[in-house]
């Protein structure tokens, strides 16, 4: 069990970079340590004394933290943005990733539970055999693709780790926030929204993705329409034809200068979003994590779509945190 539950010193609290984050960035792991405003789940050590969980699924890591199981986490996958800033004096050991498992490190952590993603690769045979030999329980979780999946992930984690009440409460709060966002007064017609992962060429979120759901819940419609794929590549001509009213770049962990440069790329494009100043970037490290952080992302997105939050001279085009989900505000414990 980790001895300390203080927030990680590498995490910033809304302001500048700490030395540790800079060093971590130079080592190439800044994306996972860069900007963490989130509070932890405030779990008590006594709750999780008997649990030692290794998570290969960042989305589940986020859920476990929100269920108050952050003290039970003993190992995580590479680039786990959720684990980067939980309340520990030391970063959690890294056990590789689902394609390249560091079995040796995994074994020495003596986990009681291992959370593994359900991918097309299936569960490696060696992990199965270690499960039998090492007496840890293997929880294979489908990677969440829709909001419904996220609710399912929370319920599943609550059930697996005896946090059913907390899981129900967390799901209820998520639903409340989602409803609150959708209940906000909208414009006459839904604005067309482009959620962008990359520029030049633009790669945007298409139908069938959790981001597509968020666009609709935020009161918009997806500017790429009924594209056949969940990630759509648009050249400049296609981008102009899509004519989005709002462009939101999702750039997890990006530095301000980098994000501003990518926002500025759109300035030369004759788009309604550019004319109305609705091209913004969200650089929250967890912005692409399909987990319990989504209500915060949705609230931010809804504010951008409705015009309550737009590019202006004072605020600039970069939104560094999507924190806003009441259940995760600092110091507040879940019921």
């Amino acid at each position: 069990m980790r001895p300390d539950s203080r927030p990680a010193p590498g995490c910033r609290g809304g302001g500048g970079w700490s030395t540790r984050c800079v060093i971590a960035f130079l080592l190439g792991v800044a994306a996972s340590l860069a900007s963490c405003d989130r509070s932890t789940g405030n779990g008590t050590a006594s709750d999780a004394d008997s649990l030692r969980i290794v998570s290969f699924v960042p989305a589940t890591t986020r859920v476990l933290i929100d269920l108050g199981l952050d003290d039970a986490l003993v190992g995580v996958a590479e680039h786990d943005v959720a684990a980067a800033c939980i309340g520990s004096a030391e970063p959690l050991p890294v056990v590789g990733n689902y394609l390249d498992i560091d079995y040796e490190r995994l074994l020495t952590l003596s986990p009681t539970h291992v959370v593994f993603p359900d991918t097309t690769h299936g569960v490696p045979e060696r992990l199965r055999s270690l499960e039998a030999a090492s007496e840890f329980e293997l929880h294979v979780e489908p990677y969440p693709v829709t909001l419904s999946d996220v609710y399912g992930l929370v319920a599943s984690a609550g059930s697996a780790f005896d946090r059913i009440d907390r899981a129900n409460s967390l799901n209820l709060r998520m639903r409340q926030v989602l409803r609150r966002s959708t209940d906000q007064p909208g414009t006459d017609a839904p604005r067309s929204v482009l959620l962008v992962f990359a520029v030049d060429p633009v790669v945007a979120s298409g139908p069938g993705s959790v981001n597509d759901e968020l666009i609709h819940l935020a009161g918009g419609r997806n500017a790429v329409g009924d594209a056949a794929v969940s990630a759509v590549t648009l050249d400049r001509e296609a981008l102009i034809a899509a004519a989005p009213d709002v462009v939101v770049l999702l750039l997890p962990g990006a530095r301000d200068a980098e994000a501003e440069k990518k926002v500025a790329w759109f300035d030369a494009m004759p788009l309604p979003a550019v004319a109305s100043g609705r091209v913004v970037a969200i650089t929250d490290p967890e912005v692409l994590l399909p987990s319990t952080n989504l209500p915060g992302v949705l609230e931010t997105l809804a504010a951008v779509v409705s015009g309550a939050m737009a590019k202006d001279a004072q605020a600039g085009p970069v939104i560094r945190s999507t924190e806003g989900f009441a259940g995760r505000e600092a110091g507040e414990t879940l019921p």
Partner: peptide, 16 residues
């Protein structure tokens, strides 16, 4: 390098 990074407090995965 993986082990060293962990001991330095900046754990990374095994470099291929």
């Amino acid at each position: 390098v993986k082990l060293g990074s962990e001991q330095l407090g900046h754990p990374i995965g095994v470099v291929p």
